[in-house]
Amino acid sequence: MSMMPKRNRRPAEDGEFSDPLKHYGNAATLDDLERRLLQSTVADMPITPIDTVSPIATIEHAVQRMAEANVGCLLVVEHGRLVGIFTQTDLLLRVVDRYEQIKGTLLRDVMTPDPIVVRDNDSPAKAINLMSMGGFRHIPVLDVDDHIVGLVGPRRTTAYLRQHFTRPT
């Protein structure tokens, strides 16, 4: 794998120099936000309450649960262990235009199995990097024993970031 950092900004204009390592520094040069994102843990973030469902629940059941709880995703749990995740994106990609035909199908057939997770002692920076790299909006949080602790979601992540900024007047 390339060791060059991924460029997530608009590319430099022709002739304009852009140093790909310009944000890399040692701990002494980190600002307070960078330090907090690196040195605190996911457990310090406002973790979204979780809503779980069985993999042998029907799609219809899951859709109703999401609507009732007004959540963007459900964690799919079997015998106390995380086995998958079902999100509004799964609904869009695999369900919506044939819902009436497949609403009795088991969730395990349309969920995303074995989702990427973070540990509760990982840094928020790691969670953000996983969101960026994988394109995930929601990442389950597990403890060292693989028990589900919660979910890092976009709204809570934004709220966490906003703690560092005063609102414009």
Partner: peptide, 14 residues
């Protein structure tokens, strides 16, 4: 949020 996460992720080691 994705774009925001992409922006922030640049600031942290690989």
């Amino acid at each position: 949020q994705k774009a925001l996460m992409d922006f922030i992720s640049e600031y942290f080691p690989l």
